[in-house]
């Protein structure tokens, strides 16, 4: 794999025959290896169409996509798709195949030796946290959440560097969806794939994304880190779509560790009160403050050492700092 971006999209346009205007209208961006980028926007904004041009389920009308340094349009389409993991909403698992055979589809297409495929199936079931005896089951015998885990395992089977996920959790209930989002994040911390993830769910986007691409009517409106979207929305549309003014939403994107400098210095534990970790987000910290009726809560580092305390004042200061204009680093590359 080259050191350059994993995915480069250049002036991408898709116009379906007979349509009045392009569905995707001149999008350009690039995604670094190992980044999870969410395509966010209302239905019909072109996000799914854009995604499907990456593995050429749709062919671009104009522009090009470079995947791992190679122009996707110049690679045989089957070969391209076998090196891009693909997860869709209703899982698309093959109902007549056992879980092991579903997972083995791409490795078999790539003619892996039987033993290697066998080991890979076990490895993936362990990775997604499903018991070994699920190998012999059929998709229908699994719950929706389990099926979607298998869908992810199947996409990971041949260890593709790039994954495309098209509203993978859209059809799941809220509790299962949140759990799978957590699992995806912990999975991603192990496998470091370059992921393009389509959703219309703002909370999901902000939770999962390293960066978010906000789309509207086929155009890329803003490409930024989640917190930046909330604090510096590009226009009225982004402000509205993400309810950027919502303080709780902002707090949920900041970890306690990132405001360590503002914590009051105290090594005093508070008896029964819960400790905050550096990875706890400020919204959860606020909830815990309100819940326990405490004025402040101790913060501990990974080693369990108390590094300071967090109070309502700390939160207020953190919020105020977000309001202040910061020097734009132009990292969105537009």
């Amino acid at each position: 794999m080259s050191d350059g971006p994993a995915i480069v999209v250049e002036n991408l346009i898709k116009q379906f025959p007979g349509a009045a205007r392009p569905v995707v209208d001149g999008c350009s961006f690039s995604v670094a290896p190992g980044e999870l980028v969410v395509l966010l926007g209302p239905s019909g904004c072109g996000k799914t169409t854009l995604l499907k041009m990456v593995n050429r389920l749709y062919e671009p009308t104009a522009g090009r996509i470079i995947v791992n340094g190679v122009d996707a349009g110049q690679v045989p389409v089957a070969a391209l798709r076998r090196q891009i993991g693909y997860v869709i909403q209703q899982t698309g698992l093959f109902p007549h195949m056992r879980i092991e055979d579903n997972i083995a589809v791409v490795p078999r297409l790539l003619r892996w030796p039987r033993a290697r495929i066998n080991d890979r199936i076990d490895e993936l079931l362990a990775l997604i946290g499903l018991p070994h005896d699920y190998r012999k089951r059929y998709p229908r015998q699994l719950s929706g959440g389990e099926q979607q885990r298998v869908g992810i395992a199947r996409a990971l089977a041949a260890d593709p560097p790039v994954m495309l996920m098209d509203e993978p959790f859209g059809a799941l209930d809220a509790i299962t969806r949140t759990r799978l989002q957590d699992e995806l994040l912990s999975l991603q911390s192990k496998v470091h794939k370059t992921i393009l993830f389509v959703t219309h769910d703002v909370d999901e986007a902000l939770r999962l994304a390293d960066k978010v691409i906000v789309m509207r009517a086929g155009k890329l409106v803003q490409f930024d880190r989640p917190l930046k979207l909330l604090t510096r929305p590009a226009d009225e549309f982004v402000t509205k779509l993400l309810s950027t003014g919502d303080p709780l939403r902002r707090l949920s994107l900041i970890e306690v560790g990132s405001i360590a400098a503002q914590l009051a210095h105290s090594s005093r534990g508070s008896g029964t009160a819960p400790c905050l970790k550096t990875t706890t987000d400020l919204r959860t910290a606020l909830s815990l403050l309100l819940e326990g009726g405490e004025e402040q809560l101790p913060v501990v580092d990974e080693g369990g050492q108390i590094i300071g305390t967090l109070s309502f004042d700390t939160l207020r200061v953190a919020m105020q700092q977000l309001e202040q204009p910061v020097v734009d680093s132009h990292e969105q590359g537009r």
Binding site: N55, L57, V77, A78, A79, L80, R81, R82, Y86, I88, Q89, Q90, T91, G92, L93, F94, P95, V105, V106, L109, R154, L164
Partner: peptide
């Protein structure tokens, strides 16, 4: 045949 299933098959590189 479920179109989602077919799309998955296509997207995975089945001819």
């Amino acid at each position: 045949v479920d179109p989602d299933v077919l799309e998955a098959a296509r997207g995975m590189g089945m001819g």
